[in-house]
Design a protein around this nucleic acid. Sequence first.
DNA 1: CCGTTAACCTGAGAGC
DNA 2: TGCTCTCAGGTTAACG
Length: 287
Amino acid sequence: MPELPEVEIIKQSLQKSVINKKINKVLIKNRNLRFRIQRGLEKELNNNKINHISRKSKYLIIHFKNKRFLVIHFGMTGTLHLIKKKKNYQNTNLSFYHSTNLPKKHNHIVFFFDNFKLIYNDPRRFGFIKFFFNKNELLRYFANKGLEPLDSSFNLEYVKKKILNRKKNIKNIFLDQSLISGIGNIYANEILYYSKINPNKKVNKLKDDEIKKIIKFSKYVLKQAIYKGGSSIKDFKNIKGNSGSYQKEFRVYDREGESCSTKNCIGTIKKILISNRSTFLCKYCQK
DNA sequence: CCGTTAACCTGAGAGC
DNA sequence: TGCTCTCAGGTTAACG
């Protein structure tokens, strides 16, 4: 499901509900996510109070009062559901593929709080959770991840350093989380369209002003997407069950055959494959 | 070290 | 209806 903007929306909606709340109990129904869930994790989480929630690229980080951390990655189809206990409770209806009911079959983890429970649901099980006993462990885990574009240090100097002597094309650079983090297939396509760069362009051919454009539009597209509540393609909804609307702003992603939206451009959006991932572009605009 | 590919999963939608 | 096939917001182990 989520790239950086969607995880940011999850963070914001989660923050309103769980700050200072204590986990009473954790039930893990299926430990086999992308990575097998650590043994004894339930015990570590029991009676822990949440201090705050943060996000790093596509990762959600739960900070506990006792200085321990739980990291959640949502893979392709992971979602969090907040279910209130009260009688006229509002089922969050964070349904998968438009189903109106919670797909209980894929509820893998349940966090119980006093007045609500939080459910991690993930049909494809590409997501994962990981517990850290201290800040050093946490920092070590993120040490080999690249900066996200919204970081203030994400600038020309940084990107040039990261792509130095690389032979990959710019699209694959965007998807390589050790170089640039937080961007996935949707936003890579959108950013390159705005930057007027062909996704297949080798990074060693990029001029400084092209890199500057990429940096500028990386920040722009991600901020816009957050402002619009993220993108809801099939199943993304925030913690309250509301959809985002950035998908309405897509210029190229999933718009094969449509006219290019750049003024006076006669191009049509094409779909090609790069490293086996769908890539959308206007060949007239993007050089 | 670098770049590419296959593998991990389930479900929706298209085509027949 | 129902079968088969392709495709989907991601990451990483394994290989050349």
